[in-house]
Write a protein that binds this DNA or RNA. Structure first.
Ligand SMILES: [Mn+2]
Ligand SMILES: [Mn+2]
Ligand SMILES: [Zn+2]
Ligand SMILES: [Zn+2]
Lengths: 184, 184
DNA sequence: TTCATTTTTAGTAATTATTCCTATATAGTA
DNA sequence: TACTATATAGGAATAATTACTAAAAATGAA
């Protein structure tokens, strides 16, 4: 049986990546190898490498915003004005299926995607709806509880944090619902 | 700084509640006190106690299925044939706002509600879409990472597990998408 | 209890997110 | 280059959620 403890075995380097610009590539070099890794992943999955797929993947990984389908669509059409929304939506689903991306778990009704496969976690701001990446080593491999082990196959373990982000901590209860009054 | 550890300080009683019947009350006695607690919560929030609110809350807490709005609607209309879908939807949102219920975090596009406020966690089956309750003590109070502490206000910490449930572990990759091919 | 005030509901329309359909275009291969 | 299975574009359809408003019901004061 495995538990959370409060021991502190030496400083771990933890990172908090806050957004800086929306859709800039993080690094030129890294972007290229990442793109090649993506092409290889497509080949392994028996999928064709199309300009649309590459552009969509690049838009996704070039953003730290955890964009919605529509946001990716708006970005990609700047380079490919004729791309259709459906292609973006379908491709993002495909990326998730082949493990090149995933949907960030949450309680909203708009799916938000992440193409960053490195170990990290998310903080969702319930006010501005921002999803902030952070990394806390102990969250990378949360142990599977005994009650589930054996009978259940756990494919993904996620620690989800919600609350008010650093930009919203002044007057947190003010205008909690930024967009609409309800949920969608 | 706080970490997950692998120590096992004596057996903790862990429970795994699998669904048995859909909308039966878990206990007659518990149901009554629960209902009174709900009425008190409404009063504290300045909300009126209406038959609809009580029925909706009862339908929610009387189920272990983490029902969708529509499922609650179908159940409540058996007793209140004239209730509208909108009332159910709006009321479920209200229950979440006053802390009498919450939306189970996930990556699907249908919101699923939970009126069980006792400490527990969820396993989401990606095949049959079932949400299974379980309880693993160490998950109840996941420590807030240092990178967030201070600048971020963490309101909710959730450990989300996904995979194949006990009923779906035979041929897990068979027919992964039970309902549609996509997501909604 | 009665009345005036406030809140909620029912029914329906509107909005938003996502998926489906299908003719055309294209990537990968021989 | 030609062939063929797969992918795309464009638009229509479906599904989930929310908005609107007249009518009904609850609340609190008289
Ligand atoms: Mn991320
Ligand atoms: Mn639950
Ligand atoms: Zn915020
Ligand atoms: Zn299952």
């Amino acid at each position: 049986m495995e538990y959370f403890s409060r021991v502190s075995p030496g400083k771990k380097q933890e990172s908090l990546r806050v957004k800086m610009g929306s859709f800039e590539n993080k690094m030129g070099q890294a972007g290229d190898s990442q793109q090649e890794a993506f092409r290889q992943r497509c080949r392994s999955a028996g999928l064709r490498i199309t300009p649309q797929r590459e552009a969509i993947f690049q838009a996704l990984t070039g953003s730290v915003e955890h964009p919605t389908v529509d946001t990716v669509y708006q970005e990609v059409r700047r380079l490919m004005p004729h791309i259709s929304f459906d292609t973006v939506n379908r491709t993002l689903n495909t990326l998730c299926e082949i493990g090149a991306a995933f949907v960030v778990p949450g309680t909203d009704n708009v799916r938000r995607f992440d193409g960053n496969l490195s170990d990290h976690q998310h903080f969702r701001c319930i006010k501005c709806k921002r999803i902030v990446d952070f990394h806390h080593g102990p969250f990378d491999n949360v142990p599977v509880p005994d009650v589930l082990a054996g009978r259940f196959i756990v494919m993904r373990k996620t620690v989800c944090l919600e609350g008010f982000c650093d930009q919203c901590t002044t007057n947190p209860m003010d205008n909690v619902t930024q967009t609409t009054s309800g949920n969608r």
